[in-house]
Computed example of a mutant assay.
Amino acid sequence: MRDRTISWAAALRDLKADRATRPITREERLRSTAGLRGSPPAALSAWRGVSGRRYVVVVHGFDQPDLVTAHPAVVLAVRRDAESRASPVAVRACETGDSGYLGWLAACAQLGAVEIHVHRLAEGQAERAAIARDLTGPVPAAGVSP
């Protein structure tokens, strides 16, 4: 086995460069959803907020527009680039039967959103609002506010 010398200065510089180019709020795909129950199994993903906390979401298309009729949730309207990287168009903390949700969703679709990511694990309204703020962070919401 050959000894290998690591340039720690170069390694730290590379880490800083990675942090500078990577968005603060970002999707982190889950490695495996195989074996989950459901027919078909739910498409799951996760988002990392500004705080570093991770939020698991269920991914829906725009063919299921009214996802907050029966249950409250934090909803992300998401667009994808040519390399399939996700970026949030807007984030909204929704209560059950949110009357402005469909209009918000239509505005997000006009701004390029193609998916709806739904997080339902928040305990209450205040926690949903805090999660929405954490996921919004310094990422521009493209003119649509939560």
Rank of each mutant, 00 (worst) to 15 (best):
R2P: 12
W8D: 11
A9S: 15
A9T: 15
L12M: 12
L12K: 14
L12F: 07
D14M: 11
L15G: 13
L15E: 10
D18C: 14
R19N: 10
R19C: 12
R19E: 14
A20M: 11
I24W: 08
R26D: 10
R29F: 03
R29L: 09
L30D: 10
R31V: 15
R31K: 14
S32W: 04
A34W: 05
L36T: 07
L36V: 08
R37A: 14
S39E: 11
P40F: 13
P41T: 13
S45T: 15
R48Y: 02
V50C: 00
S51D: 06
R53D: 12
R53F: 08
V57I: 04
H60Y: 12
G61W: 00
F62H: 05
P65I: 12
D66N: 13
V68S: 01
V68H: 01
V68K: 03
A70W: 00
A70Y: 01
P72G: 02
P72I: 08
L76Q: 02
A77E: 05
R80Y: 01
R80S: 02
D81S: 05
D81K: 10
A86S: 11
S87L: 07
P88E: 07
A93N: 05
C94R: 03
E95T: 09
T96P: 01
T96V: 07
D98P: 03
D98T: 04
G100I: 13
G100S: 02
Y101N: 02
Y101Q: 05
A107V: 09
C108K: 05
L111M: 08
L111Q: 09
G112R: 07
H117L: 00
R120F: 00
E127T: 14
E127D: 14
A129R: 14
A130C: 15
I131R: 00
D134I: 06
D134A: 07
D134W: 03
D134V: 06
L135C: 07
L135A: 07
P138I: 11
P138H: 12
P140E: 11
A141K: 04
A142K: 06
A142F: 02
G143M: 07
V144L: 08
V144T: 02
S145Q: 11
